[in-house]
Amino acid sequence: MFGVVVAVFFLLRMVPGDPAAMILGERATPASLAALRQQLGLDLPLWQQFIDFLARVVTQFDTGDSLVSGVSTRELVFQRAPVSLGIVALAVALAILIAVPLALTAARRVDGWADHLVRILPAAGMGMPLFWIGLLLIILFAVQLRWFPVGGVGSGPGEPIRSLFLPALAVALGLAPPLIRSLRAQLVEVFDADFVTTLRAARVSERRILFGHVLRNAAVPSLTLLSVNTAYLIGGTLVVEKVFGINGLGTLLFQSIGSRDFPVVQGVALYCAVLVVLVTTLAGLLSGLLDPRLRVAAPVPRNQGSPQ
């Protein structure tokens, strides 16, 4: 988190462009530019700007007021966050719904035609950028079939989910290929394990073996992979929002970058970093629930001559 705070502060100030000139326009006089820089605190030494920025982050969890609108960054982020979080949550659900059946189909028919097909399709999907997937989905499901809106978020009953489905599907199609490959490899390994053979010899039903033992053991590495790809998921969401014209954090981020609105860009990056940390922590907790061995502390070695 601290590394993100340092990076977003200093890297943004290395980008060419004067925020005061962006706000006032090309016809601004040097006196008005200097007055605005003083008002915004841009005339202070860089180290002092960083100390003020860090103090505000720690005490208020805010990166400052927008240089363009004057609104608090925290308020701007919280206004747009529900839409972006909705896309993230829906994309995770769709990625799981896509990955689990395909991985199961491939693992139960190793080296069959279904297995080869499932292994080829994700490899092709990984080479397609998210904005291209989003455009294809718009052309097929929104323009040709008219099942979903082309862009924006509706306000009627069920419209928000209907509007966010295609953006979430685009992100899920980009996230699912590595999950399919990881889960398939784990399922193949677990299906060949000795305890599965023992359960079958004890005439335990295949359904119970699959859902009670195989999937539970194979899900932990895939869950870890999903948490690692959280940054990719969030970054893909921000890009897809721009393609579908959704007024979320992605739109706010690109607008702020174009206007050199440092506080807002820093705020979006900081809150996204917080989300990555939370999701990674949650994935670790879920892994402990799925595999009790992860919750058991390693035994502390004792000296041979120590009293019992």
Results as ranks from 00 to 15, higher is better:
residue 305 G to M: 13
residue 110 V to Y: 13
residue 85 L to A: 13
residue 63 T to N: 07
residue 191 F to N: 11
residue 139 I to T: 08
residue 14 M to C: 05
residue 161 I to P: 02
residue 10 F to E: 01
residue 102 L to D: 00
residue 197 T to C: 00
residue 186 Q to L: 02
residue 243 V to M: 05
residue 204 V to C: 10
residue 136 L to W: 14
residue 227 S to M: 07
residue 170 A to V: 02
residue 153 V to Q: 07
residue 223 L to N: 08
residue 119 R to W: 03
residue 297 A to W: 04
residue 73 T to F: 06
residue 47 W to P: 04
residue 296 V to N: 03
residue 151 G to R: 10
residue 241 E to P: 02
residue 18 D to G: 10
residue 23 I to M: 07
residue 306 S to D: 13
residue 234 I to W: 05
residue 19 P to D: 15
residue 307 P to N: 11
residue 86 G to C: 09
residue 127 G to D: 03
residue 259 S to T: 15
residue 220 V to M: 10
residue 84 S to Q: 01
residue 155 S to M: 11
residue 98 I to Q: 00
residue 307 P to K: 14
residue 275 L to C: 09
residue 260 R to Y: 11
residue 276 V to S: 12
residue 11 L to N: 06
residue 249 L to N: 03
residue 135 L to R: 14
residue 265 V to T: 07
residue 139 I to H: 10
residue 196 V to W: 01
residue 152 G to Q: 07
residue 182 S to F: 01
residue 232 Y to A: 13
residue 172 A to R: 02
residue 295 R to P: 01
residue 115 D to Q: 04
residue 165 F to G: 01
residue 120 I to R: 11
residue 134 G to I: 07
residue 306 S to K: 01
residue 265 V to R: 12
residue 165 F to N: 03
residue 167 P to W: 09
residue 52 D to G: 15
residue 81 A to F: 14
residue 149 P to R: 09
residue 91 A to Y: 05
residue 80 R to K: 15
residue 141 F to E: 15
residue 18 D to T: 14
residue 129 P to W: 10
residue 287 S to N: 11
